[in-house]
Nucleic acid binder design. Structure first.
Length: 152
DNA sequence: GCCAACGTTGGC
DNA sequence: GCCAACGTTGGC
């Protein structure tokens, strides 16, 4: 059982879109480091859902991993913005997982809080210049985020 | 909207 | 294999 953080631009896909759709294929990851983390994901792993950009950047909820990694179908579709001509069905380059909506936080945990909280120091998302869109989260960091997210 | 930090591409 | 040029991410 592992914990992860996945980023999304709320203008393209927000936690509310996620809540409406109930489940989604997490496609479009086109970075090797992020791809490698996708391939480590296992069903029942939990992901923190992070909004990058938008008014208040931060963690807005949780989704659960429902499948192990499978080839990201968008890499094969010529018309898709994530089409990759170097990839073939026999040797796919990019992977996706299916995720299911779990909850939207009562109290989102904002990036400014994450940076300020000593118990969250070292979180990748708070590091300067961190562009990694899929990243591991340690259990203590996860537990603390949940505590903050459920405070009244 | 700006731009620093980053990852990738491609010429050599 | 190096590294300059380029494109993108994402915080501010």
């Amino acid at each position: 059982m592992s914990y992860w953080l996945i980023k999304s631009e709320p203008s393209s896909y927000s936690i509310d879109d996620m809540a409406r759709d109930k489940s989604a294929d997490w496609t479009g990851i086109r970075n090797y480091q992020a791809r490698n983390f996708i391939r480590e994901m296992k069903p029942s792993d939990i992901c923190l859902f992070y909004h990058s950009g938008g008014e208040e950047k931060g963690i807005y909820g949780l989704v659960k991993v429902m499948s192990s990694a499978k080839p990201d179908e968008t890499q094969f579709k010529r018309s898709d913005s994530h089409f990759d001509p170097k990839s073939t069905e026999e040797k796919p380059i990019w992977y996706s997982v299916e995720v299911k909506f779990v909850e939207k936080f009562i109290a989102p945990v904002y990036l400014s809080e994450i940076k300020r909280d000593p118990q969250l120091s070292g979180m990748v998302v708070a590091q300067q210049g961190s562009r990694l869109s899929v990243q591991p989260v340690s259990p203590p960091h996860y537990e603390h985020i949940i505590k903050l997210a459920h405070r009244k």
